[in-house]
Amino acid sequence: MANPKDILVITTSSAEGLKIKKHLKPVSAHIVAGTNLFSDFLGGLTDVFGGRSSSYQKQLSSLYNEAIERIKYNTHEIGGNCVIGLSIDMDEISGKGKSMFMLTAIGTAVIIEKDEKSNQLSNTNEKFENVGVERINNLRQRKEIIEKAENSKLIYDDETWSFITSNQVHEIFPFILKRFTNVIEEFQSIQETYNTFNKNFISYVDALEDSKKTNLLYDKIASETNHQVALYLAKVIKELNLFDFEKNMSLLNNPDFKKQKIGIRISTYDKSFYDKKDIENLNQTKVFVSTTFKERGEITTKKQLLSSKEKDVWNCECGNKSNDIGEYCGTCNNDIFGFKQTEMKPNEIVKYIEQKIELINEYIK
């Protein structure tokens, strides 16, 4: 199974249409959270209606979802594609006047046969005979948020970020970037504002389905005219371990050299998990980088001052001529390959990929 998030998780030991081929071993996840996580609930019950607190429920749901995601990743790592008998418990740990919540999730990792019946168990797109008012109100709020984002009227406060993250409102992805382009460009002078945005945006993207967030990030990099925004999206890919071979090869083949340079940077980023196919893909990336990124400047000669001897120099594509071999252009600060001093060079990328392949090979059968 290529995607840990596709792993089926059920609370029972069996289900109709579920054919277990092999039981692997128990898997667990432990999450410890300070009571300050529920500060909105404990500090004041302003959002309580009918004996329930919406903020408290959201925090609990977030913890439960995180535990299930960790269970899925642990199962994927040992080769399973399903977790049966899931059980989640929450305990309070107290001591020295402080208290914390510990959430423990445990289940059994198994391998199940993939057939239509088992796939239906995880189908979330089915139609219902009845629909609750909460679902209707949620859809109404979603449509209002999308409309406001399209018209540049959406206020990105904590409540908005919470809603678009928990409800995976992928439709407003481009409008978020448009709204916060200035924050991305001026991040050094408005560090606090940038940090707040970055934290919210990372959480928002991470909550999306894997295929959705991968498509959104890579496709936007390819089409984005603002280089700073494109570089920021590459940082998001790095943060979330979203390296995708096919998508990145599209960037490496982009006719825009700036896009190619982003692609070569992403070539060093990681995935959450690797398998034999990834080794093959990494080798292809290594060969492509080593054979594609050649010298962009022209090597020529010039006479030395007060001497009849000539020496090799290179003319930069920016128009600056007679740069010393091995030196950076005095005008655009690029080397003969088109890379700045602060950027990883193609030969460094190749060595990095080779090292990664060696490390993966130590674990892959």
Rank of each mutant, 00 (worst) to 15 (best):
K98N: 12
G263C: 04
I176R: 06
I364W: 00
D210T: 12
K5C: 05
K58W: 02
E280D: 13
K258Q: 15
K271R: 13
M100N: 11
H30A: 11
S118R: 07
K22D: 07
E343I: 09
S307D: 09
F337W: 07
K58D: 15
S290G: 00
N119R: 10
V133R: 10
L252A: 04
E171L: 08
V205D: 03
G51C: 08
G326S: 10
N200T: 01
G338V: 09
T196Q: 12
S122R: 14
F257A: 11
E171H: 08
G95M: 02
I10C: 01
K21A: 09
E129R: 03
E77H: 06
D91E: 12
N226D: 15
E358N: 13
C82F: 02
C82L: 02
V183E: 10
K212C: 09
L231D: 13
Q120S: 11
S203E: 13
I84F: 00
Y194C: 11
E224T: 08
F187A: 07
T331I: 05
E185P: 02
F245G: 02
N200R: 08
E116Y: 05
F41R: 07
C318K: 10
P26A: 04
E134V: 12
K365H: 08
L37T: 14
F243T: 06
N36R: 12
E171P: 00
I111E: 13
F101W: 05
G44W: 03
A105V: 03
L24A: 01
I68G: 01
E159K: 13
S122C: 07
M1T: 07
I88H: 03
I106P: 01
K114V: 13
Q141R: 13
P26L: 07
K178S: 14
L282H: 07
I71D: 06
V27A: 08
L251G: 02
G107Y: 02
T301M: 04
L251K: 03
Q141M: 10
P255W: 02
N167T: 12
